[in-house]
Design a protein around this nucleic acid. Sequence first.
DNA 1: CGTGAAAGGGTTCACTC
DNA 2: GAGTGAACCCTTTCACG
Lengths: 153, 153
Amino acid sequence: MSEHDAIDLAIMRTLQKNGRISNAELAQKVGLSASACSRRLDILEKSGVISGYHARLSHKALDYKMIAIVHISLSGQFAKTLTEFEAAVRLCPNVLVCYLMSGEYDYILRVAAKDLEDYERIHRDWLSALPHVVKINSSFALREVIDRPNVGL
Amino acid sequence: MSEHDAIDLAIMRTLQKNGRISNAELAQKVGLSASACSRRLDILEKSGVISGYHARLSHKALDYKMIAIVHISLSGQFAKTLTEFEAAVRLCPNVLVCYLMSGEYDYILRVAAKDLEDYERIHRDWLSALPHVVKINSSFALREVIDRPNVGL
DNA sequence: CGTGAAAGGGTTCACTC
DNA sequence: GAGTGAACCCTTTCACG
């Protein structure tokens, strides 16, 4: 929609790392006065480039120790089939990510679970119960190497 | 590490949705005085349950319109092989997520690219150049159905 | 875009229960 | 644990350079 100069990028980069920094400190970091910085930030937020701010919770601290990657195939790719599947998958709180994919599988999901027993419950009560599913394939993360909220600028 | 009561959960839930809310407003939402709320938040942050705050940037607004899911296999699973691969993959700014996996493939990556041409460049200059890689399999997201930063509380 | 100023809130103490 | 009050700091907005 618009062009971003070095200062806009610096604002985004800083807020990516620390979303709760005060405007005064942000202004100082990017070399702007507080009022100028506040104006730019307002533009970035209202134009949708910055779409929100979120606390990141530690999955481990909340006892979500397992991450599963789930590949799912549906019985056909009719619009109604996809819409019904997606409406249902949105209701499962353990599904962190869901993409409609090109290629062999139709959907790929990232699912958080507390432990294997918890995952079995999620698989049974949620994933297997999703409409139009014909194939589910789960694999498990042994270690998280990278998990960035955004692309590096 | 510790137990969280209903108020702690309300604080986390609120901050997940709006990471830049003021302490005063947060206190009002969860039914606490400002000072009590600030003290609880301090504990949640210092104990690592809340591990940070991040601005969420719109991939689309920044012209990152493609998301690829990349499965990668290495030549063996020796510790040194994994360490070298992981050190290299961390340097690529387009890699949003990287997990070491159980199962057929060794790693699964989520990669952001501006367009197909950009993805070809990333594939050539970064992914193919990663050490010990013997197999790369890319597929592309047609649509983002869910992308939550955290598990639903 | 920067400055400065003013008004209105927010944060952080020590203190109290 | 929680609430109160006061001092201090931050944010936002304005007119002006």
